[in-house]
Computed example of a mutant assay.
Amino acid sequence: MTDLSTSTLFALFATFFAAGAVKGVTGMGLPTVAMGILGSLLSPLAAASLLIIPSFVTNVWQLLAGPSFIGIVRRLWTMMAGVVAGTLSSAYMLTGADTRLSTFLLGLSLTVYAVYTLFAKPYHVSPRHERWLSPILGTATGFVAGATGVFVIPAVPYVQALGFDKDDLVQALGLSFTVSTVALAIGLAIQGAFHLDGMTLSALAVVPALIGMWAGQYIRRAVTPAMFKRCFLTALALLGAEMMLRGVW
């Protein structure tokens, strides 16, 4: 990635600013938006590599900001173990030579997430089912993350259904995203795709991501989060559909 043009570098930084702004308004979405936009400019593998450090920094911030870290870890540790196992088992798909497959899968995961979030009705998971569902859905999340670099499906709908209050929900999602990011980095390293030059650019991308998060706080005052989220999810669904078509053709 050392030979990127000035225009490409500008696009990368603009992408992370936009992704940070979405996270600032909605409390989530930085990895998803970044993978969606970068996946249309670069290979999914290159996009996922650039995502590692900005995702880690912003999600650790989100994870440590809440009051219930230990309790949330105790409740979700089996899900997190599944995330790690699933990611490590599927990372070879993201690093494979066939970029069309990874592009199609990335587009599919973005489209499914956007459409589900737009139209699905809220539901609640009973505590008696949580013990066996957590490792299964954690593993499924990891498998999707390892194959596409996106770790919101099915983790986000599942965690939202566990009945956390508002602050604990934000912290629980921060835990899931942080573990997913670390597991993805380990998976890429095992596959020999974790390069220091890419990490330098990834580290620099933290700056526009944090500025974007700060700007998102101001955007929230001008546009309701619900309206902003609908517009962003609609755009994400269209972007995912385009990537699916590109992966097929």
Rank of each mutant, 00 (worst) to 15 (best):
L110T: 01
P127G: 13
L118T: 10
D98F: 03
T111L: 09
F104L: 14
L106M: 02
V112H: 03
Y92C: 08
V125G: 05
P122E: 02
G107W: 00
Y123L: 04
G107L: 00
L110Q: 01
L110N: 01
L110Y: 00
T95Y: 10
S126H: 12
A97N: 15
G96S: 14
L108V: 15
L108K: 05
L108T: 14
R100T: 04
H124C: 13
V115T: 13
S109W: 00
D98L: 02
P127F: 11
Y92G: 11
F119E: 09
T99S: 11
S126E: 13
T111D: 04
S126G: 11
R100I: 02
Y113F: 13
F119Y: 14
L110G: 01
Y116Q: 02
V125H: 08
Y92P: 02
G96L: 07
Y92E: 10
L118N: 09
L108A: 14
P122M: 07
Y113E: 10
F104V: 03
A120V: 10
S126F: 12
T111G: 10
A97C: 13
L118Q: 06
G107P: 00
G107S: 04
V112T: 13
M93W: 15
T99W: 07
L101D: 00
L108W: 07
G96E: 12
T103I: 09
Y113P: 08
A114W: 03
A114I: 08
L105Q: 11
Y123N: 07
L110R: 00
A120D: 08
Y113Q: 07
L101W: 00
L101P: 01
P122D: 10
Y92A: 15
T117S: 13
T117D: 13
L118S: 05
G96P: 14
F104C: 10
P127I: 14
Y92S: 15
M93F: 15
T103R: 02
V125E: 03
V115Y: 05
L105A: 12
L105N: 12
V112A: 08
S126R: 15
L118V: 09
R100V: 01
D98M: 02
T99Y: 05
D98A: 07
L110M: 02
T117Y: 02
Y116R: 07
F104E: 02
T117M: 07
M93E: 13
L106N: 01
L106I: 04
A114F: 04
F104Y: 12
V112K: 08
S109T: 14
A114S: 10
S126V: 12
A97Y: 14
